[in-house]
């Protein structure tokens, strides 16, 4: 059987039946992107590897808890990955770590190992994310970046930006809705391409 041809849901169903080859196929499909998300948030290869391991271990253990009615598989996967990375970032911050305010630092795509083709694709995807972010008014972009990449809570963001908490909540909601609309075609295509 060629697992590469199976859809995400088919693979997940097999993972529920403790089929390690299916987990391996999901790892091949999404491992690099999960690792990339961890890298952007944590900027530390060891922690990123731990996060990636935890994410796929969660899939191995909790695949039966995924409900397609609640959202796409990739939404579930990246939600687990993001939560795990942010938890690690906050844990680290409690022990005196710092973070950068530069959102470009989090979207930096430089990689010595990329081939020219991969680099071009990466540039294009980077541009797409940047463009989507650029369509957001700066105040909305700031709250999304502070929450998603820096792991600040909404209360911490309100304090940092010296804005009312209600304003921060509204900006978060509007920003996510706009991002979904702006990036939906690309995300949909990506998911279709890979399964």
């Amino acid at each position: 059987m060629n697992y590469e041809d199976l859809s995400d849901l088919d693979l997940l169903e097999r993972v529920t039946e403790r089929d390690a080859a299916a987990l391996s196929a999901l790892y091949d499909r999404y491992g690099r992107r999960v690792f990339a998300l961890g890298a952007r948030i944590l900027n530390d290869p060891i922690s990123c590897e731990e996060v990636t391991q935890d994410v796929f271990l969660s899939i191995w253990r909790r695949s039966a808890s995924y409900n397609p009615g609640k959202g796409r598989f990739t939404t579930w996967l990246f939600s687990i990955a993001h939560n795990r990375a942010i938890d690690e970032l906050r844990r680290r911050r409690r022990y005196g770590g710092t973070y950068s305010d530069d959102i470009d630092a989090h979207l930096d795509i430089s990689s010595d190992d990329s081939s020219p083709d991969e680099w071009a694709v990466a540039q294009s995807e980077y541009a797409m994310v940047r463009n989507a972010l650029d369509t957001l008014p700066p105040p909305q972009r700031a709250v999304v970046a502070l929450a998603y990449f820096h792991g600040l809570t909404q209360v911490e963001i309100a304090r940092k930006l010296e804005q009312p908490l209600g304003t921060v909540k509204t900006r978060m909601r509007l920003a996510l809705k706009k991002l979904r609309t702006a990036l939906e075609p690309r995300v949909g295509l990506a998911n279709h391409e890979i399964g």
Binding site: R33, T75, D112, E125, V144, Y148, L183, E184
Partner: peptide
């Protein structure tokens, strides 16, 4: 819907060498 917006940020980050 909101999670899909958040996913966009993570899912479209370019892959890196592991």
């Amino acid at each position: 819907e909101l999670l899909e917006g958040a996913e966009s940020l993570g899912a479209l980050l370019p892959a890196v060498e592991m």
